[in-house]
């Protein structure tokens, strides 16, 4: 899992204000515990088993899990990543956890959609060493269509974070025929360039259909059927574009 520098312990928050078509963590969309059915296979026979996804935990419980990973985080220069879902959806809890991590000396990353209030961001900004920040589409209309929300607040918050000199890794899903056209890429590049030097890396995250089965399990519609996975050549070309603009780029981040 590539979610920040070094070996990382990732805490997934449940609940997300966005509903991106391609979301590969659909278990993070709804806020509450969910009952799903998993199928275990043994000698060709299927054994359906009920499983609860998500668990209400307090700061101490979560920290008990995190500190177990200390040796790996320390040896690798890694740390803790809060992801989701949207971690800022439970901002007080997130603040608590970030504080606790800082007391332990852990490097912290927050993986966010950016769809949150300025006030929430200010609460956790100082406790966050690096933001992993999604930029899904520059066109507001299409952003709304694909994710269910407008991109206005998201881009404003990103500009704000950059102005505060926070380190930011941009996460760019590459979705054929949805956001990989020259126009969108051009606008994205232009926007990101205005934010340097805060952008430490751009990760191109090629769409993959690996999460399809999860949608069935969670009884959700999967709107991406028929969308191909991006080709390696296209990705390379896109990578070059960003590199020429002076960004450090990774495919698959």
């Amino acid at each position: 899992m590539h979610d920040g520098p070094g070996i990382r312990t990732t805490v997934f928050f449940k609940g997300c204000p966005l509903q991106c078509w391609w979301c590969h963590n659909p278990e993070g969309i709804r806020k509450d515990e969910e009952e799903v059915v998993s199928v275990h296979k043994m000698e060709g026979r299927d054994f359906p088993v009920k499983e609860t996804v998500g668990r209400w935990m307090d700061t101490e419980e979560v920290m008990n899990e995190i500190v177990r990973e200390r040796v790996f985080m320390e040896e690798s220069g890694g740390g803790v990543t809060f992801s989701g879902g949207e971690p800022l959806g439970q901002v007080d809890f997130l603040e608590d956890l970030l504080l606790a991590c800082k007391r332990e000396g852990f490097h912290t990353a927050v993986d966010t959609t950016g769809y949150t209030s300025r006030k929430n961001l200010m609460k956790i900004m100082a406790l966050t060493d690096i933001f992993l920040y999604d930029v899904k589409h520059m066109d507001d209309r299409r952003h709304l269509a694909y994710t269910g929300v407008s991109n206005g607040r998201i881009l404003e918050n990103l500009t704000f974070l950059a102005s505060q000199n926070k380190k930011i890794m941009i996460r760019l899903p590459v979705l054929p025929a949805m956001n990989d056209d020259d126009e969108n890429i051009g606008r994205t590049l232009h926007f990101l360039k205005s934010l340097t030097p805060a952008i430490v890396e751009v990760d191109l995250l090629p769409y993959h259909a690996m999460a399809t089965h999860k949608y069935e399990k969670f009884g959700m519609d999967y709107k991406m059927s028929g969308i191909p996975e991006p080709g390696a050549d296209d990705l390379e070309r896109m990578k070059k574009k960003f590199e020429r603009a002076g960004f450090q780029v990774k495919i698959g981040g």
């Binding site: 070094g6 070996i7 040796v71 790996f72 320390e74 040896e75 690798s76 220069g77 890694g78």
Partner: peptide
């Protein structure tokens, strides 16, 4: 490679 190295060191 760096992560694997860290895993070994850990």
């Amino acid at each position: 490679k760096q992560k694997l190295t860290a895993l070994i060191r850990s």
